[in-house]
Design a protein around this nucleic acid. Sequence first.
RNA 1: GCGGGCGUAGCCAAGUGGUUAAGGCAGUGGUUUGUGGUACCACCAUUCGUGGGUUCAAGUCCCAUCGUCCGCCCCA
Length: 462
Amino acid sequence: MEQYKDLNYNLPSGFDIELIPSEKRLESYLLDVIRTVFERYGFTPVETPAVERLEILQAKGNQGDNIIYGINPIVSSSEDDESKKEKNSRALKFDQTVPLAAYIARHLNDLVFPFARYQMDMVFRGERAKKGRYRQFRQCDIDVVGRQKLNILYDAQMPAIIAEIFSTINIGEFMIRINNKKILAGIFESIGVNKEEEIKLYIQIIDTLDKVGKAKVKQNLQAQGLSDSQSLQIIDFIEFKGSVTEILDFLQQKATEINNSDTFHKGVAELQSVINGIKELKVPTDKYCIDLSIARGLNYYTGTVYETTLINHESIGSICSGGRYENLVGIFAGEKMPGVGISIGLTRLLRKLLDNNLIDKMSATPAQVMVLNLQQELIGTYLEVSKKMRDGGINVLTEFDDIKLGKQLKKANKLGIPICLIIGAEEYKTKSCKMKILKTGEQLDVSIDNLVDEVNQKLLEI
RNA sequence: GCGGGCGUAGCCAAGUGGUUAAGGCAGUGGUUUGUGGUACCACCAUUCGUGGGUUCAAGUCCCAUCGUCCGCCCCA
């Protein structure tokens, strides 16, 4: 034992994702909420391995090697199969979309399309870690993937899902910002930028608007070749603000003026359909808006894009984002498979919610009742009473050791257990117990026979 | 990859060349043993990431090394 105490047992950079029990319980709760909502919309769970073949992860359409975390076996003996393989031939998944593409290709014949799946696995990034930016983190993703085509209503369903999740977990007001990349691409086409590569570049510049500011964006656009007036035109366009109706009217108006970009017209029509769907899904109108500046740096998005921010906490950044992509998921199956999906970066979100006190803390244990130990001779009774309550659906912690009552209460208090049951010689005689509510100090005599009902009743009141 | 900062207990730290290494939080024990959260008392670093050097003297200066953090880039 001694010899290891000097080793550095701190977590390696970027892997500092451990949570103390109260925090981990909160994460479990969030996962439960998210899973429940995903399943309510018919999404089915999928899990893929942490490791994929490197060439899969490097397949076109992804974000490049700089974010991939490679793995190698430590031992490379000649008998080791791994060592015969090329070094770095395997790597950890950096998102769930590329693995989804591979999953679909592997199980094409077993899946029903449109395939709606959710996945809440850990993913890994090889890039430099920073605060709130991890090398391992949990992403909660949903995607719907069609063969050849995918109904635009799936795009409308995403904001409904986001709204339901974030309304359920009580973290304050939020706003789902919706845009369509075809509109952005179209506006560039309308001013004479027609090369796809250039448009992508410009859109990436636009994406930095809220981070670096208007002046810098204008400067960057011009640096890439736009004229002064073109830059202003673009910035004016993406900065147009208003209600959903006002922006749609503005876009319709704009569409009549633009006759050199089909893309623009398509984008406006898609956005219109998405908004119509959202209205029919009865997403509360104060939960979503159109934001023409939303671009999503990732260039695989081709249509609808989403970002969700917390009102008054915009600095936290997007807490849930995603969009529609045409050519990402079918790459291995060799088929056109349009998809639409969103992702919640749960590890980062939870950290920020905790750091900013935006979410109520939970207790350090799921136990609702602690059965205290007053004398070892009664341990049989304690176990019996504990079981009785567990059978009644109550989470119970039993104190096995005969330690001072004060210490037991202190322990229960620290764990955040709301109710303690005290059974000593006196209570034993009368087949009763003392039910102590820790928060108030209130103490009630309860018959063992009615215990389950009484405790359940009290738990509801607290 | 380039540039900069920082490493003192589980955590947050004071200390900027003189030797008993402040303080706070957390933790442990106690305030007469069947009642916690408050209060009070006590305990809690032979040692300052590691190795070497300078000096009568080093947590403090120098070198190396490891770790870590920030900015550029990119994203959850």
